[in-house]
Simulated assay, not measured.
Amino acid sequence: MVSAFQGRLYYVRVSAYNMKGWGPPASSLPPSAAPSWRESDGREPRRRGHIEAMERLLQQVRATHTHYCCGASKLQNPSRKQSVSRSLKHLFNSSNKFVKTLKRGIYLAAVFYHKDSLLVTAEEQIPIVEVDDSYSSSLMQDFLWFTKLSCMWEDVRWLRQSMSVSMSSSSTLQARHKMLTAAGQLQQNLLGTHNLGRVHYEPIKDRHGNVLLVTIRDTESQHSLFSGKWMQVTKLQSQRKSLSTPEEPYALDILIITIQQDILAYQRRSTHRLAPGLYLGYLKLSSSVDQIKVLVSQRTPNMLCHARVRDNANVSVSFLLLLPAADDVCSAPGQSNPYTPLSGFLHLPLQMFE
């Protein structure tokens, strides 16, 4: 029904029609009903003002940390000779160069793409820098923290300065500070841009002790951000000389092999939007000791699993009564799960889905 008003009673009679004509009309049961959907046209968005409020909070935190960092730096009062020595050491430090082969440790790779081309170094390698030569059992928590930088790459330098003052002997802060340092190297010294894109939803691991964190950015054109060049993905894959075996590939080989079908495809599908209408969503969470994951479809990983109901987006009370109770669809950890997904689905960390 088009142009119906909420709260007004409407009466409906139904007649059937075939080749012999119309049949007798029959009244509906109940004889009348009032629309109970939620009117959304003309309403202010729920998130109106939230972004501005969060920005104000961030500015307050930044101002507090800046004051604290400045006070600590004045107490240290480093001499000019120490500053020059540190600058020279930073200039000739090998960690400021791209990594060609992976040894045991954590690495950060920056994937910049435009259509079917990738931005590579002069040696035709994906830009990769070393984060650390080892990692702890809290790697996943550090990684989920690192993914939040996708929304604030421009604050990496400020975060490094703030964290270096309060780092002390905390292993967690030290690991995260090294992630910030690696990101800063890519931004300032190597790529020359603050925006590294979005962090891929999971790190790439191999059996050789390597962990590869990947950032992905879709550029508007093939402009070079450093002394590199653009290369077709297929050409990069064909020219790659692997040092590993197919049974135990290195993390870099896994990245190059899956970059077209998995990583870039996931990035493109994450930007899709649903057409206007009414959808029934399905929220399925799975929890473990260190994280919570949500079930999504590979075709639309930025949305919950869903089914389209109709073009009309209005929601009625009778439709909400169709939803099952939580006890009917939840199972305790360790029990057999009758809702285990088939192929075509992903379990994303909840922080990544948000």
Rank of each mutant, 00 (worst) to 15 (best):
E247N: 08
V289G: 06
H306C: 04
G277W: 01
Y279S: 10
G281T: 13
P249C: 09
V294H: 04
K284V: 07
S287H: 09
R299K: 12
Q291D: 15
Y282L: 11
D253Y: 06
R310T: 15
P301W: 08
L274M: 06
S286M: 05
A307E: 15
D253F: 10
N302I: 02
S287I: 09
Q298R: 12
L274H: 01
K293I: 04
N302L: 03
R268C: 01
A251W: 02
P301Q: 06
P301A: 10
L283E: 14
R299D: 13
L285G: 05
S288P: 00
G281V: 11
Q260G: 06
L264C: 03
L283D: 07
V289K: 11
D262S: 12
V294E: 09
Y266W: 13
L278N: 01
A265Q: 05
E248Q: 10
T271I: 09
V289D: 10
R299A: 12
S270E: 15
H272G: 07
Y279L: 07
L255N: 00
S288T: 05
L304V: 01
V296Y: 06
L283C: 12
L295Q: 12
P246Q: 02
C305H: 01
L304M: 11
D262H: 08
Y266E: 05
H272M: 08
A307Y: 13
L255H: 00
H306E: 00
Y250S: 14
K293H: 11
L285E: 05
